[in-house]
Design a protein around this nucleic acid. Structure first.
Lengths: 338, 338
DNA sequence: TTGTAGGCGTTATCAT
DNA sequence: ATGATAACGCCTACAA
């Protein structure tokens, strides 16, 4: 094989230069106790001088594993999830790992490809924020069954044998509802997505809403759920909301299952000339634009960074301990009152 | 060396099973013309049956390079940059590359570490969105000098010998200003960050503003620039803006160098009871929350996806052609009138 | 404490 | 068209 230009010094170069064998260099570099201190220092000096850098491929090949993990998300534009990623990466970095961030563009097929890729690239494990429904993810099941370390974040599949870290969304729905009840409302509307039954996080928030309202003695008429398809209504300026808010019978308290819906409510109110004092609004996610809004609404904040951190810790533990022990955690959100 | 559990079949396994030598398998897998068609088909069948996956470390070691590139950004929460990343990754994927996304948390030291890491991991090249000032990035200079393929996005250093792809921010400033001039304003305020002179993109937008205003015959009093530190003013509700907007002398036309500033203006107007019709506002970046705002303002949209795509293409070209040819591109933004 | 040598899974250069 | 074999750079059991 034609020797190509080498991009950097190898341990052999260092060994020659330092006058020792290259296994000694290897030991020194991995700071094994089996090296004389003076030898080690000399080797490190030489290594530095030669600008030596370990070749991760050679290391990966020899060690049979890499320090690279995977993080698969639907897209990169969701601030919320990106904060989870940042939290995870901080924890991973501390443990000497890196994460390859892959995004699926909300396509099941791409998600599958990514998972395949993670397997073949000898990546040691992954954090996933899956899309799709339980039944549609056979490869996830296979992954878990094969013992590939996986931690799900933000979403989970009740019937999937895999670790996950999520916000306690039921509690979140509860916090929001209690907040409105505390403000003497006896009639509350919960605003959610038309597909919310497919998304565990939204479904859980709504459950928290229903439970709390029920316990407070609110009947079905006083704890109504209104849903619509956000995507299709944006260009038409939220007809469902206009209908909801017109007339004097309009709700005085609204729990929006996320801040996008809350923004939509606020925009519609504003355009219909409804003063902000007329409606108590609680959102979810504590979106970043909140401090810039003319009327900041209250919002349930998810422990995004912590979710990432915990997911990373659990993943690392699975890898290091080689344990297939499944951990399921729901981290408590907190209410931000504005 | 203790043989460890192998995670997947190797070409040797495939070779044994198919009854050929493993070099033939290698050729078949890389679909070389030097293999009999029937043999190749058989090998591929066996490979599939054994669930063979190439070991990227072995490939990387043997080939001396990997298909992995790097993408270094300050943080992951900026939607704008993430769209650039998505664009780049689409182009990279088409060419069979992947990108390792690293974020520096706006720390020069971390940026440096990442760049070091990219070198040592035999990553073939990188797209960077650098922080810091020209003088503070000696490692960037070294990288470029060493012939490591690098493309800068979103920001550039005028005196750095490296390729870059950015928005034509001067043109952007011009578009915004022309828009306001077209609406008969003879007095315009440009709102920017206190540190804008350190950020080429903002500086360029302001230059576009000044040039255009000057050409239209506006004097210094009619084309004023107001700057403040956003971070420190958020919690105090933008005192600089309040001052600017109070009194009847308030500006009737404002060009905000990004949509965060535009939001701040809008919020302040709203709180001061200034009706939205009183001020013509143009922002920059076409932020995603725009369609949800009660009063959507006009904004200069950057060709985010294209920036990523072009950066990727240029990077791949540098790698494949082995050329150190430097490419500097400014892509035109477009005005979104609302 | 240090050196020697075999192996990790591929690729590529020889032969055949 | 195929097979044998030497790299690639590193790790590590074993010998010294």
């Amino acid at each position: 094989m034609t020797p190509r230009r080498r991009d950097s010094a190898t341990i052999k170069d260092v060994a020659r230069e330092a006058g020792v064998s290259y296994s000694t260099v290897s030991r020194a570099l991995n700071d094994s106790p089996l090296v004389n201190d003076r030898t080690k220092r000399k080797i490190l000096t030489v290594a530095k001088r030669l600008n030596y850098r370990p070749n991760v491929h050679a290391q990966g090949l020899a060690r049979g594993r890499s320090h690279m993990l995977g993080f698969v998300v639907p897209d990169l534009r969701g601030t919320l999830l990106m904060e989870v990623v940042e939290g995870a990466e901080r924890a991973l970095a501390e443990a000497g790992y890196r994460a390859l961030l892959l995004h699926t563009e909300w396509e099941l097929e791409i998600e599958k490809e990514h998972v395949e890729y993670l397997r073949s690239s000898r990546i040691g494990g992954a954090i996933l924020c899956p899309i799709g429904r339980d039944e549609e993810v056979p490869w996830l099941r296979r992954l878990a069954r094969e013992g590939f370390p996986v931690v799900l974040v933000d979403r989970y599949f009740p019937r999937l044998e895999a670790s996950h870290v999520v916000t306690d969304n039921v509690l979140g729905g509860r916090l929001a509802t209690e907040h409105l009840l505390r403000r003497e409302h006896r009639s509350i509307v919960c605003l959610s997505d038309a597909e919310s039954h497919l998304v565990t996080s939204l479904a859980d928030r709504m459950q928290g809403f229903r439970e709390t309202a029920g316990e407070a003695g609110l009947g079905p008429d006083q704890a109504k759920v209104v849903t619509f398809d956000l995507q299709s209504e944006v260009p038409r300026e939220f007809p469902t909301l206009r209908r909801l808010l017109e007339g004097s019978q309009r709700p005085r308290a609204i729990f929006a299952v996320n801040d996008i819906f809350a923004m939509a409510v606020y925009q519609t109110m504003s355009r219909m000339g409804i003063s902000s004092g007329e409606i108590d609004l609680v959102g979810f996610d504590d979106a970043r634009m909140a401090p810039f809004m003319p009327l900041p609404w209250s919002s349930v904040a998810q422990p995004k960074e912590d979710i990432g951190r915990r997911a990373a810790q659990i993943l690392i533990e699975m890898i290091d301990r080689g344990s297939g022990h499944i951990v399921r955690e729901s981290l408590p959100p907190s209410l931000i009152v504005r």
